[in-house]
Amino acid sequence: MRFRIRRTLEEKSQIVEYEIPLENPTLLEALNYLKLKVDRSLTFSSGCRSEICGSCAVRVNGKEKLACGYKLQENDLIEPLRYGEVIRDLVVDMNGALDTLKRSKAYLDSFKEATITYEDEKRIEIQTDCILCVSCFSSCPVLEVNGEFLGPFALTRVYRYVNDKREANVKDKIDVIQKNGIWDCTLCGECTMACPQGIDPKNDILMLRGKSSEFGYSDPSFSQGFGGFDDFGFNPSGF
């Protein structure tokens, strides 16, 4: 089986082709084989081997995959995730991506006593399945033009805490996601396609937009673009 890897060789990014004798391997098995049998300098991250630790996300033919959860196909091109400095081969600096959690206040900020029902917990179940593999972040085209964009996983996490009845300070979270946040998303759905856990950040962002309107926020592009739709007498948001 032949496949290609974008590597860092002599401080330059280069695509290298490999051939391995494995049958139907996962991408991680293929990478491990290469490292042990072909080239000890091949650099990548891995951990649990069963899609839960989030270490081994890479891009395969331009789509984000966990190496341990993807079966290698003939002629695949393997590349590092986007929007983090490539440290070496497939290893990327995650600190920038993880920093969005801080900037978006994606945590329980101010605890209040609340009875969490079965349904309450179900409402945040899928969002809390996130493994922070950062695949969605790498898939997001908005980050290509706006490096300050908070990105999908942080916003999904914000939604998870906004939806948590134990959070007393929802407004604070809604406030911080207005700028470079929910309104910058183009709703293209790449993040939803990329998530190995079946999370739908696009929908979570839509829900956060709805929630924001409860706090008096609206899409800033409508009031600014084209000199303002309202002046024209046409209100596209329908209210």
Binding site: Y107, L108, F111, T115, I116, T117, Y118, D120, E121, I124, E125, T128, Y161, D164, R166, E167
Partner: peptide, 14 residues
């Protein structure tokens, strides 16, 4: 853990 936000599964009566 519950106070810091761990989403423990719940029974029907909360």
């Amino acid at each position: 853990l519950d106070r810091i936000g761990v989403p423990f599964s719940r029974t029907e009566d909360g």
